[in-house]
Design a protein around this nucleic acid. Structure first.
Length: 653
DNA sequence: ATAGGGTTAG
């Protein structure tokens, strides 16, 4: 109902009134702490008004301590210092361990204290002045608070203070330092600390392995793994999963397979989730055949694929244009009495629509109700994308009426793009402002849409201003954003400005990709500036941006239009070498040049000659047959018609 | 109960 309201009318006032009822507001409260009962309300409350708790007082009944009472008490402390010393006191109670929310609360307490007192030593002295005795445990807890708050320099400082106070940091403290050193990318130092740790435990290795996986440092992962095994720590199934998923995440699939072999050789039970991780890894990198092979192997060793395994495979087969296989797996799944869950339905909606099977995607969406599945943000985003791809924009309010999904940033981004694509860029700008008002932190997707909308509205200067603001604030923005501005400038007729902008982007080493270059090259070729276009083409290769089919076709058709047979032939040779075909538009241009009634018969002969040197042979139906892509094919011989045509042309010449 | 599988931009 909320969404129906939203799309009923899109005038500014109704729009914002409608979105207010979207309960966006609730979204911002979801992260706030729930109101816990205060310690004073709880039975056997722990008296903490004074800081004399280190003295011999009546021991409170600690079995009544619960994290929520502790947190409430800490939140209630009159000062940060009291809060911190209370936190230490609680930690000393037998069998009591602080939970994550409490640590998170202490992060703000301790960062205040750090601001006030400057150093860890300063805080310790302050604690001592109120009677809190410094122990190794105190410093370790401080380390853990800083660690929890990602205040890495302070973690290291606390660690240093441990030694200064004459304590020998235990393995736990060293593990934290190892993690922090990895997080600040001091890999060698981290590995040294690990090596010098007297009695490393399972976690020491686990932390190192996990971080190294994140840093894509598989060589060191192997080194640490070997070290771990030598120290007598056998990896547990979780560690195998961890390493495998890290390897798969970075597409190091051969190593993942090696690890699988190792597991099998060592007789480690290969769990369904390990198989799922591997299968998903191969699906994601497009090696569906290996994924299918793994599925066979898995079944062979007596493991049964579950819905997760199947979801990866179904997605993989659909993305590899093998719907038959995908539905086969879906059928097997259903025959086992296992029916699609929400994730699988979301995958189906997404994949089917990307294949152009919009009706089927909509049907999956409609089937959710009878499956008793409640659509979520993924469903919504996929559905918006389906509607955009199918260009059936009117369906959005129809399909989503009564759908009460709490929008997240991705949903909002989907809608931003929906407004623009459906021909309502004003909606994008309005919705964007509304999002910001409601506290959403826009990301690169949001920026992309709003810049695109401003360009389409002809508000190009505004777009450039917003763009400049974005790149000032977010230095690591990707190619999409730059491309939108370049394209916007070209489309608005500011061709030279666009080119200045593009060259400036190159000189500033901004991350331009093949699409950015294609937009610029397209602008230049349409303007007849083939020399400049070719320069950019050379430049992109120098910058290691591989030209794609579109780039080659832009260049080759540009030379064709400029009647530059030599360059045309040169590029065509390159395309043949790379097995890149020419598109319909280029074919048409070549066809025109090959017409016998051309005004320049010599050019035509030249072109035919060049084409024949390349092994390309025109015939009547399809004037150009090229080795390579689907829109062109190979011909081994000159057709007789070609000779006739050549005769015609020569005789005319 | 949990992992493992899902969405958005030029």
């Amino acid at each position: 109902m909320l969404w129906r309201l939203m799309f009923k009318s899109l005038t500014k006032t109704t729009f914002s009134r409608a979105t207010k009822s979207l309960s966006f507001a609730a979204l911002h409260h979801s992260a706030s702490p729930i109101n816990f009962p205060k310690a004073s309300e709880a039975q056997n409350s722990t008296p903490l008004k004074s800081n004399s708790f280190t003295s011999n007082r009546t021991s409170p009944k600690t079995n009544s301590l619960t994290p929520r009472i502790v947190l409430a008490t800490l939140q209630d402390c009159p000062s940060d210092l009291v809060s911190l010393s209370s936190f230490f006191w609680f930690a000393q109670q037998p069998h009591y361990f602080h939970d994550k929310p409490t640590f998170r609360h202490m992060v703000s307490v301790v960062s205040n204290l750090t601001q006030t007192h400057g150093t860890v030593k300063g805080i310790i002295e302050e604690l001592q002045s109120v009677g809190c005795v410094t122990k190794a445990q105190t410093l370790l807890l401080l380390m853990r608070i800083y660690w929890c708050g990602s205040m890495y320099d302070m973690v290291l400082e606390s660690f240093q203070e441990m030694s200064n106070y004459g304590y020998t940091p235990n393995t736990y403290a060293r593990n934290i330092v190892i993690d922090v050193l990895f997080k600040i990318k001091r890999v060698d130092v981290a590995l040294n600390v690990l090596n010098e740790t007297q009695s490393p435990n399972f976690l020491s290795f686990n932390i190192a392995i996990c971080n190294l996986c994140w840093l894509n440092d598989a060589d060191n992962v192997k080194r640490v793994l070997r070290c771990m095994l030598m120290k007598g720590y056998y990896m547990n199934p979780e560690t195998y999963s961890l390493v495998l998923s890290c390897l798969c995440k970075f597409s190091r699939l051969n190593e993942a397979l090696q690890l699988l072999s190792m597991m099998m050789v060592l007789g480690v039970q290969v769990s369904v989730n390990v198989w799922s991780i591997l299968i998903d890894g191969f699906c994601k990198s497009g090696h569906i055949e290996v994924a299918a092979y793994l599925l066979e192997k898995m079944i062979e060793v007596g493991s049964s694929p579950n819905i997760v395994t199947c979801t990866s495979l179904i997605k993989g087969f659909l993305k590899s244009h093998m719907p038959g296989k995908a539905f086969e797996i879906l059928g097997i799944l259903e025959s086992k009495g296992c029916f699609p869950d929400l994730v699988l339905c979301n995958v189906l909606i997404d994949c089917l629509s990307k294949m152009g099977w919009y009706e089927d995607a909509f049907e999956v969406f409609s089937s959710l109700r009878e499956r008793k599945l409640i659509p979520d943000v993924y469903t919504f985003s996929s559905l918006v994308s389906t509607i955009c791809l199918s260009k059936q924009y009117v369906l959005l309010p129809l399909l989503t009426s009564g759908l009460a999904v709490q929008p997240d940033l991705v949903v909002c981004n989907g809608l931003l793009s929906y407004f623009c694509r459906s021909g309502y860029p004003e909606g994008t700008v309005g919705f964007y402002n509304d999002m910001i008002d409601r506290g959403f932190l826009p990301d690169k997707y949001s920026f992309a849409s709003v810049l695109n909308a401003l360009c389409r509205l002809g508000r190009i200067n505004e777009a450039v201003n917003v763009y400049n603001g974005i790149i000032r604030t977010y230095p690591d923005i990707d190619a999409h954003i730059h491309t939108i501005i370049i394209s916007g400038l070209i489309k608005s007729g500011s061709f030279h400005k666009a080119m200045r902008f593009f060259r400036k982007s190159i000189s500033e080493n901004l991350p331009l990709d093949v699409v950015s270059y294609n937009i610029a090259i397209g602008g230049l070729t349409r303007d007849g500036q083939m020399k400049e276009a070719y320069d950019l083409f050379t430049q992109m290769k120098k910058m290691n941006v591989a030209p794609n089919k579109q780039t080659y076709n832009l260049i080759v058709s540009g030379f064709c239009r400029n009647r530059d047979v030599k360059m045309f032939s040169h590029i065509m040779q390159e395309m043949l070498d790379k097995n890149i075909g020419i598109d319909g538009h280029t074919q048409k241009l070549v066809k025109n040049l090959l017409r016998s009634d051309t005004r320049d018969p010599h050019l035509t002969v030249n072109l035919l000659f060049e084409l024949s040197k390349l092994g390309l042979f025109p015939n009547e139906d399809q004037l150009l047959l090229v080795n390579g892509d689907d829109d062109v094919s190979v011909s081994a011989d000159f057709s007789s018609q070609t000779y006739d045509k050549l005769d015609d042309i020569v005789s005319v010449g």
